[in-house]
Amino acid sequence: MIELQAVNKWYGDFQALKNINLSIAKGEKVVVCGPSGSGKSTMIRLINRLEVHQSGKVVVDGIELTDDLKSVEAIRSEVGMVFQSFNLFPHLTVLENLTLAPIWVRRMPKREAEEQAMQYLGRVQIPEQAHKYPGQLSGGQQQRVAIARALCMQPRVMLFDEPTSALDPEMIKEVLDVMIELAKEGMTMVCVTHEMGFARTVADRVVFMDQGEIVEAAPPKEFFAAPKTDRAKLFLSQILGH
């Protein structure tokens, strides 16, 4: 489903990603973790080309990501993304946020798009907020709307870039519950997060990154019980220590 082969990326002189090789199968759930600045957000953003790599190959759903705009837009409509800071469109209502892309990218009739939007709002437990503006919702509600917005495009892959990091603690669970639900339905997911409980519950594989490299990749049981490298041990002790 997703193939990263020998991918390198630099910001000026700073090498953000070093020789990344990662292959994600259909239906697989991968959690990416690591200290801040380790390149995990950059890596996930390569998958829908919000970041551009300088060497190597990124292939999503059989299409290689290049400068060709059409193929990039095609991939983006198949890959849903949820951001740390929600990035809902503040000038549109929740319902308009959810129907805009299906109508204008998928050319779905408006009525159908609205029915679908209401259905996904139901799944993330906030159908009653459809006609409000994002600014009127709590952080947890906004992030659930953002997930529903991505799902309305019926994506084949969902990317989550630290979806709970900007949330108050009491709102984290409601968002994670939605994500767990999604994982159970068999969605292919790549998730950058520090929620190790979530990783234990849903991940097929945990990818640990540090300084732009993939240091370890293993099933969660293995990774948490017996990390192979010192860097992973140090990271786990810091994150689980408190």
Binding site: L50, R76, S77, F83, N87, F89, L100, M153
Partner: peptide
């Protein structure tokens, strides 16, 4: 307009003109 608005529009597969017309310019 925050960068996240441009990114969210792109991530949904909206073309340049559509993301400008529906998301960025109105704001």
């Amino acid at each position: 307009i925050p960068r996240g608005q441009y990114e969210a529009a792109q991530a949904l597969g909206l073309s340049y003109w559509k993301s400008m017309g529906f998301i960025i310019l109105p704001q």
